[in-house]
C-alpha cells in the first residue's frame, strides 16, 4: 500500500493550523478596532444640515435650556424636535435678513418642515425612552456630549450596545440630581464626595442593575 501522506504533511498541517489561528486572531483584533472606529460609530463626524445651527451659540453663549426646544424629553420616548415656530420665536426679530436663516423663514411661510439630518440615532430594533433617563437623573451630556461646545452638531458617543451596557451594568456613578439634568459642565461634581449619591439614588428609584441588562428592556 502506498503512503497517503508525504514526509512533510505533518509540517504543513502544523503550519496550516497556526496560520488559521493567527488569521482568526488578527481578524478579531481588526474587527474589534473597526467597529469601534469613528468610521462605523460616526463619533465626531459633522453632517451637512440645511441650516448651520450652532448648539454652542444657543446653549453655550445664550444659556438656553435644552428643554426650550426639546420639549418632550421629560414626558416621552423622543426628546422632540422643535417646530419652525420655536425657531421663529426669537428669529422673527433677530437675524431677520440672514441668508443662513432663509430655509427657516421659508419653512414658516410654506409650512414645509426643515429637513434636518439626524445625528443621534439608534438602530430600529432598540427601543429607547428619554423620559425615564431624564427622570432618574442621567444628564443630557452623558450621551450627547458637550453640545454647548459644538458649533455644528456631532455624535459624541458610539451608540453601540456595549456602550449602553457600560452604564446599565453599573448605573450608580452616572446618576446626578434630576433637577439638574440639562447641566453641561459636571467638572465641579466631586466624585469622591458624592460616592454615596449614586447608590442612594439607585435605592430610592428602585434601580436594580441585575434587571438592567434584561434583553427585553431595550429589545422588544
Amino acid at each position: 500500500m502506498p503512503q497517503i501522506f508525504t514526509a512533510s504533511a505533518d509540517t504543513w498541517l502544523r503550519a496550516g493550523v497556526l496560520l488559521v489561528g493567527l488569521g482568526v486572531l488578527v481578524t478579531g483584533v481588526l474587527w474589534d478596532g473597526a467597529i469601534g472606529s469613528s468610521a462605523i460609530t460616526a463619533v465626531g463626524w459633522v453632517r451637512d444640515q440645511p441650516v448651520p445651527f450652532s448648539h454652542k451659540h444657543h446653549v453655550g453663549d445664550l444659556g438656553i435650556d435644552c428643554r426650550y426646544c426639546h420639549t418632550t424629553v421629560e414626558t416621552g420616548p423622543h426628546a422632540g424636535f422643535p417646530a419652525t415656530h420655536t425657531c421663529m420665536t426669537c428669529h422673527s426679530q433677530l437675524w431677520t435678513g440672514a441668508a443662513a436663516l432663509a430655509p427657516v423663514r421659508d419653512s414658516l411661510a410654506t409650512g414645509t418642515p426643515i429637513a434636518w439630518q439626524r445625528v443621534a440615532r439608534l438602530p430600529d430594533y432598540v427601543q429607547f425612552n428619554h423620559s425615564i433617563h431624564v427622570a432618574r437623573g442621567v444628564p443630557c451630556v452623558t450621551c450627547h456630549g458637550r453640545v454647548d461646545q459644538m458649533p455644528l452638531m456631532m455624535r459624541a458617543q458610539p451608540f453601540q450596545m456595549r456602550w449602553c451596557l457600560d452604564c446599565h451594568r453599573d448605573p450608580d456613578p452616572h446618576l446626578r440630581p434630576p433637577d439638574q439634568v440639562t447641566r453641561m459642565d459636571w467638572s465641579t461634581w466631586d466624585r469622591e464626595g458624592h460616592a454615596d449619591y449614586g447608590p442612594h439614588q439607585a435605592a430610592l428609584f428602585g434601580i436594580k442593575p441585575e434587571r438592567m441588562t434584561d434583553c427585553a428592556l431595550c429589545h422588544r
Binding site: 445664550l62 444659556g63 438656553i64 435650556d65 426650550y68 426669537c90 433677530l94 433637577d179
Partner: peptide
C-alpha cells in the same frame, strides 16, 4: 423651573426683562 426654561431667555431670571436674547437685540 418652567419660568427659567421658557421665560428667562427674554425676561431674565429676575423678571426685569434683560435676558440674553434681549441682549442680542430682541
Amino acid at each position: 423651573q418652567r419660568y427659567d426654561i421658557y421665560c428667562s431667555p427674554c425676561h431674565d431670571v429676575a423678571g426685569a426683562g434683560r435676558g440674553p436674547v434681549v441682549a442680542r437685540g430682541f
